[in-house]
Design a protein around this nucleic acid. Sequence first.
RNA 1: GGAGAGGUGGCCGAGCGGUUGAAGGCGCUGGUCUCGAAAACCAGUAUGGGAUUUAUCUCAUCGUGGGUUCGAAUCCCACCCUCUCCGCCA
Length: 419
Amino acid sequence: MISIDLIREQPDVVRDAALRRGDDIQVDRILELDSRRRELIAEGDELRARRNQVSKALGETKEKPPEVLAEMRQVGARIKELEAEARTNDGELQALLLAVPNIPDADVPAGKDDSENVVIRTVGELPSFDFEPLPHWELGENLGIIDFTAGVKLSGSRFYVLKGKGATLQRALISWLLNLHTREHGYEELYLPYIVSRETVTGSGQLPKFADTMYHDDEDDMWLVPTAEVPITNMHGGDILSADQLPLNYVAQTPCFRREKAAAGRDTRGIKRVHQFEKVEMYKFVEPSESPAALDQLVADAEDVCSQLGIPYQVKLQCTGDMGFSVVRTYDVELWAPGCGEWLEVSSCSNCTDFQARRANIRYRPEVGARPRFVHTLNGSGLGIPRTMIAILEHYQQADGSVMVPEVLRPCTGFDRIG
RNA sequence: GGAGAGGUGGCCGAGCGGUUGAAGGCGCUGGUCUCGAAAACCAGUAUGGGAUUUAUCUCAUCGUGGGUUCGAAUCCCACCCUCUCCGCCA
């Protein structure tokens, strides 16, 4: 959520920023509702002040003049009217404010979709094969480690089963990642609920706008997490942190549940886009002045994973049209998958500045006695597991159909080759 | 799931219709004292909204939402959460 002060002071900046993303927002209506809001508060407060004064006086004497009581009854009724109008007014205002996206950084390239994202750097040589590299869905089936039929049998399309060394490879990858981030990158590990309340899913911004992208339990009104970002953001919801608690760096591995309705028909082969997948998520709560550097660190941590896996990757800066709603700047990290012949987004690292913090009400006190300020939040995958598995399988495949395990994972897998 | 107890400021805890935004204690910050520290003493110490001549004025908030009343932390209703015991269970 953006600050109402910013819209009041610089409506054009906010409007133009939304247009750069391809969103049209109702700035004029927001300003109108905001000024009505203040009128309602002024009148209501005045009446409440009078009522408080009279009630106090009545409390001090035994006299209860009926005409005063009658007048106060009217004042009370008017206050109720004003409160009702304020509720409707604020409801509409809130809804419109929640639809205003964050302001992209000035140097973020304009563009309408991911085709206009800008490659910042490419690291590592694209491998050449003296045989035709296979896509992971063929490798996985040939090796008996990915069973698509079983997934469909159990749950339907976009579900799969990992078997044998495939399942072990995933488990090894997860523990290697968590070890790396906790031991070398300075993150604290969290184990989180995978099913969260409506309040939690609202605090991080998925509700109300993205309700149909999540799985939901009607009976208890609980939601399956689409990313660890949801519970982590709300860990400190409503808190006022002290400056010496910052920065907070968290890492958590969770499954992510996504209905993928909007992507019907896209990426239907393999495990690139599925309804349930594992992800290791990095998350930072920092002081505002620190957030640009924290974003660079997040990207560096994701890149370190790619380098250590020994797979070529590239870093892209998202253009305005591809950026998420709550971010000012996002870098994607993509691993090269020679079998499907494409760069796979395995991490998306974003600076949300105070946008999420404002919504989830996460503040800190810069110094003892100072007014609380909103923190800045950042998140980045480190990494998404299925796509990393794809890159590993396709990059390390051999002419005989087997797959070598990357060096760094071998202590965790206990084997160096699949097949 | 059943029975009971309870949710008050950073924490503990009083209050149970009217000078209570809230006693008292702890903590924290500043000061006095001290070579320094501790102790003691003194002072200060919530968050958010609105107005503003930025000195200040005002409103809201005692789990949440309603209700009663001139007036609610205090009474009534609903919901949420925590704890204890019983049941069930990985």
